[in-house]
C-alpha cells in the first residue's frame, strides 16, 4: 500500500435501540486512535471495547464473514447504504475512506419490512420468506448431471451468474426512496429464469415471489436506480425489467 497508516479521531453518532418496541435515539461517541487500515466493522469493535471498558452496553450489529460475501453487515453510514464507496460492503469499507475529526452517522436499515431488533441489527427474515415462496427449483436428487448435458448460452449463463452474486444484504431496500425490494426479488427470479432448469417453474415463481414481496410490506419501485447504485454486488436494474416482463406474462397465463 502506498498509503501510509494514520490514526484518526472520530465523532460517531450511532443509533441505539434496546429492542423492537423501544423508540430508539442517537448517541454521540468520541473514538480516538482509529487506524486507517482497519475496516469499518473493526472500528465499531474498537468502539465496543471502549464501551465495555466503561461498563456500557456495546453496540449490536450484524456481521459474519467480514470478506464481503455473506451479506450480514448492514448499516447506513452517513446516509448511504454500506457507506460512501461504490460496490463495497460495510466490512470491506476501510477507515482510509474517512478523514480525521469526521463525524460519522451510523443508522440501521430503515423499512417497515426490516424492523430494528437492537441498535443496528434489523430483522431481514422477510427476504427469507420471499425466497421460501419460490426462490428454488424442484428437482429429484441423485447423481450430479454431466456438466454440459443441458446447453446454456454463454450470454444467459453470464446474466444468471451476475444476478446470482446478490448476497441478500438489503442495501437495495435501505437505499430505495420507497423501501422497495424489487432489486433483490428480481435478482433471485432472474438467476433461475435465465437457466433451463429454472425455466420450468418460472411463471409460478414470479407470481408467488412478487405476492410475498407485496405482503411483506415493501414499497413499490419508481425507477430511481438508487438500489443499483448502492448494491455492493452491482446488481443491475435490468433484472427488475426482466421481473416485470416475467410477471405480466405469468399473469396473462392466469398464474
Amino acid at each position: 500500500m502506498s498509503q501510509q497508516e494514520q490514526l484518526l479521531n472520530l465523532n460517531l453518532k450511532v443509533w441505539r435501540q434496546k429492542n423492537r418496541k423501544d423508540s430508539g435515539h442517537f448517541e454521540d461517541y468520541r473514538l480516538e486512535g482509529v487506524s486507517t487500515d482497519s475496516s469499518f466493522l473493526e472500528m465499531i469493535d474498537q468502539l465496543n471495547e471502549q464501551l465495555v471498558a466503561e461498563n456500557k452496553d456495546p453496540i449490536t450489529f450484524d456481521h459474519d464473514c467480514r470478506e464481503g460475501i455473506c451479506g450480514s453487515c448492514s448499516m447506513m453510514i452517513n446516509g448511504q447504504a454500506h457507506g460512501p464507496e461504490k460496490q463495497t460492503t460495510t466490512c470491506q469499507l476501510h477507515m482510509r475512506s474517512f478523514k480525521n475529526e469526521d463525524t460519522v452517522v451510523i443508522e440501521p436499515w430503515r423499512a417497515r419490512a426490516f424492523p430494528v431488533m437492537k441498535d443496528l441489527m434489523v430483522d431481514r427474515s422477510s427476504f427469507d420468506k420471499i425466497i421460501q415462496s419460490g426462490g428454488f427449483i424442484s428437482v429429484n436428487t441423485g447423481n450430479a448431471q454431466d456438466a454440459n448435458a443441458i446447453p446454456v448460452s454463454k450470454e444467459n449463463a453470464d446474466l444468471a451468474m451476475d444476478a446470482a452474486t446478490c448476497i441478500g444484504c438489503g442495501a437495495c431496500v435501505a437505499s430505495c426512496p420507497n423501501a422497495s425490494a424489487m432489486l433483490f426479488t428480481s435478482a433471485k427470479i432472474s438467476q433461475l429464469a435465465l437457466l433451463p432448469q429454472g425455466r420450468v417453474e418460472a411463471e409460478e415463481r414470479v407470481s408467488s415471489m412478487v405476492k410475498t414481496m407485496d405482503e411483506e410490506g415493501f414499497g413499490n419501485c419508481t425507477n430511481h436506480a438508487e438500489c443499483e447504485a448502492s448494491c455492493p454486488k452491482g446488481i443491475n436494474l435490468s433484472n427488475i425489467a426482466r421481473m416485470n416482463k416475467e410477471y405480466i406474462f405469468s399473469k396473462i397465463k392466469g398464474k
Partner: peptide, 30 residues
C-alpha cells in the same frame, strides 16, 4: 403507490444522501 411507498418506511433516515448515481431531479420530483 405513493401512500404505500410512504408507509413502507415509517421511520425516516437522519441524513439520507443520494449516491449521485441513481436518483435524478426528474425522478425525485415525480
Amino acid at each position: 403507490l405513493k401512500t404505500e411507498n410512504h408507509s413502507a418506511r415509517p421511520v425516516k433516515y437522519y441524513n439520507k444522501t443520494r449516491t449521485g448515481r441513481g436518483e435524478t431531479i426528474a425522478s425525485a420530483t415525480m
